[in-house]
């Protein structure tokens, strides 16, 4: 028996609906037999009547109602059909959910699921990664699970957190990633994970790019270069300690992110390492992101728009040569 990343998300929601009567799911096309554009809620509406609710195409109001319900003691999980459409709900997420606790002392425990990242042919409006925007604003927790195990435990943990959580799930991993079974143990949100230990270069990354980085590390290992791969797991909070410890071991840092290059998670990691761990560096830190254009439709363009094992390897070689 194996479990895909998508099934882990579905199973986590089933678990939450079973165990916590405050939980309900709210999103477009998620109910009935249809079960969501990606089937992340398939079968749940039948099993949990009245708690898996279809919504109008109203991202702002979807999140607005979730905020109200959360302040009233519920634990809503909002599914955005695509992360890209959460831009319509930015105001509710950033200005209403994100400011609520600081202003009023009333916690706002909503979880917003964002099907994120690029897949072939999806184009500019069905491929975005939004973690940088949400991390920039105060008051939100932003998680980016890269494994089946994390997809499961981090969604359960996200709902338990008394604050708004932006759960960025990667669409490319939905079917590509499989585990033998659902996990029994968990690493808490806020802790990064050393996915592969190394001594020559730290690649700090998250979400689908973890797997690109692992492919590069494996390739380099054959020629005796050991790359350490750090999976951040959550962008906010950012586990600076684990990153600094890794750079202390390797002396070299490459950050990889799938989102646009201006600012963002990779820039933040480099800023922290440069300011807090400058003495640990043997070479200038570097980063790779997507290109600074909208995400193109055609696969020939798309593969070149985002970082991939080839471009990461090329960058790694340059850093190692310094």
């Amino acid at each position: 028996m194996s479990v895909t990343y998508l099934e882990a998300i579905r199973e986590a929601q089933a678990h939450l609906l079973r165990e916590d009567e405050r939980v309900y799911l709210y999103g477009q096309d998620i109910a009935g037999k249809f079960g969501g554009a990606f089937k992340a809620t398939k079968g749940l509406a039948e099993k949990f009547p009245g708690r898996v609710l279809n919504t109008p195409i109203s991202e702002d109001a979807m999140v607005g109602t979730a905020i109200g319900a959360a302040m009233e003691g519920m634990r809503p999980i909002v599914e955005m059909q695509f992360a890209d459409f959460s831009s319509i709900a930015l105001n509710q997420i950033l200005n209403n959910a994100g400011t609520q606790f600081f202003r009023t002392n009333i916690p706002c425990p909503i979880t917003v699921r964002l099907p994120s990242g690029g897949t072939k042919g999806s184009g500019p409006f069905h491929s975005q990664s939004m973690e940088a925007i949400y991390s920039h604003y105060p008051g939100l927790v932003v998680v980016t699970p890269a494994t089946v195990e994390d997809a499961y435990t981090m969604l359960i943990d996200a709902v338990a957190i008394d604050d708004p959580v932006i759960y960025c799930e990667h669409k490319y991993l939905y079917y590509h990633l499989k585990a033998d079974a659902l996990p029994k143990d968990r690493l808490p949100i806020g802790k990064a994970r050393i996915v592969r230990p190394g001594r020559d270069l730290s690649i700090v990354t998250y979400s689908a790019m973890v797997h690109e980085a692992l492919a590069v590390a494996k390739e380099f290992s054959a020629s005796g270069v050991e790359i350490e791969v750090v999976d951040l797991r959550s962008i906010k909070p950012l586990d600076t300690e684990t990153v600094l410890a890794s750079v202390a071991r390797t002396g070299r840092l490459l950050c990889v992110g799938e989102s646009f290059p201006w600012g963002g998670a990779t820039a933040e990691v480099i800023a922290r390492v440069a300011t807090e761990g400058f003495h640990l560096l043997d070479a200038a830190p570097a980063r790779i992101n997507a290109r600074d254009t909208p995400i193109p439709y055609h696969p020939n363009l798309w593969v070149d728009h985002r970082p991939n094992a080839k471009s990461i390897a090329a960058k790694a070689r340059r850093i190692l040569a310094e």
Binding site: G64, I67, N95, R103
Partner: peptide, 25 residues
């Protein structure tokens, strides 16, 4: 009484969510 934010109209759905939760409870 909810604490409004300055972005007009955004309070309506929050009130709706509170009412939904009250019904669920």
């Amino acid at each position: 009484q909810l604490a409004m934010i300055s972005h007009l109209g955004s309070l309506i759905s929050v009130v709706v969510g509170k009412l939904m939760a009250k019904r669920m409870k």
